[in-house]
Design a protein around this nucleic acid. Structure first.
Length: 310
RNA sequence: UACCUUAGUAUAGAACG
């Protein structure tokens, strides 16, 4: 069972729901861990409704199960269900409180978030970071900064959340300063800084940072594609795309959008056709590009190929 | 003894402002 659990987890992390479920069903006697892992896998794949179904099907629950379900509600934005689950849980640990904080944060209920933070019996770096991000998301940079300074605990995630707060609110110089003072950097931190340069049109700085990064991923690349493409270096953007070893849906969608911004409808279409699969973003991107450039008929035609909505 | 849960990154549109 122990090894079987690990297997379910591994499949879940490495992409395949089917394999994960298969190995779950292969377990002769799944225990609470197995069930918790199964739910977790579904959450990671965004299959929230199914995660809930599994949760209700479980023979028994632990704190971890309830916490996982709280997270499901957080993702669904279902504040009421989250609240009532939280209230009906027989006990709460720090993770439960933190997850509930996250519920309010993702629902955008800042005042409730603050209230709950203040009534938490105990807080840690997770709680502080959630509080910080909650303020940032509402554009309250100064308050976010206050939280950052008040916290007294900060790890690379906290620093990055603060960095993002500056970036999202157009404070590039503060962002640069903070970035230079970070005790350590990881891929996400670099990517946020890259994004800062990209959205401000500082292509050269972006390129310099990109070249100095010890690790890169698909996020770094698509960020650079936008930076290059929208700032007069479309060729380089395309070149970067073509030389990517791994692409995901976002990589493709990004290039479609960049071509669209440049009014190059043909190339957008071409990329769209080359993609291995599409999602709602790819479709709406191409639809708007077509219609904005006077290809209304073609846009309609594409729209009509869509399966009827649920 | 061992396995599970919480915070920070990229792409389209729409709404609110």
């Amino acid at each position: 069972v122990f090894l079987g659990n690990l297997l379910v987890l591994m499949y879940g992390k490495c992409g395949s729901l089917e394999l994960a479920v298969e190995s779950f069903s292969a377990l002769a006697h799944p225990n609470v861990f197995s069930w918790n892992i199964l739910i977790q896998v579904y959450v990671q794949h965004g299959e929230l409704d199914q995660a809930k179904v599994w949760f209700e099907m479980m023979p028994g629950w632990t704190l971890v199960s309830w916490n996982s379900m709280l997270r499901v509600y957080a993702h669904m934005g279902d504040l009421e269900s989250a609240k009532s689950l939280f209230d009906s849980m027989p006990e709460h640990d720090l993770v439960a409180w933190n997850t509930m904080l996250q519920v309010y944060a993702s629902a955008g209920h800042l005042s409730e978030l603050i209230k709950l933070f203040n009534s938490s019996p105990e807080v840690d770096v997770f709680s502080w970071t959630t509080l910080l991000a909650g303020h940032a998301q509402k554009g309250q940079v100064q308050q976010a900064q206050d939280v950052f300074e008040l916290a007294g605990v900060a790890n690379v995630v906290t620093w990055t959340a603060m960095l993002k707060a500056y970036v999202d609110n157009g404070k590039l110089s503060s962002a640069k300063f903070l970035f230079s003072r970070m005790p350590e950097w990881d891929l996400r931190a670099w990517n946020v800084m890259l994004q800062a340069y990209a959205q401000d049109g500082h292509v050269d700085e972006a390129i310099r940072l990109y070249k100095s990064m010890p690790v890169l991923d698909v996020v770094s690349s698509s960020t650079m594609i936008v930076a290059l493409g929208l700032n007069g270096q479309l060729q380089d953007a395309v070149h970067m795309f073509e030389s990517m070893k791994e692409r995901n849906l976002v990589s493709w969608n990004t290039l479609i959008a960049v071509y669209g911004e440049k009014g190059d409808v043909e190339s957008s279409k071409c990329i769209f056709d080359r993609m291995p699969c599409h999602d709602a973003v790819s479709l709406t991107a191409l639809l708007t590009i077509l219609s904005r450039n006077g290809h209304l008929e073609e846009s309609k035609k594409l729209f009509n190929t869509l399966p009827p909505a649920a």
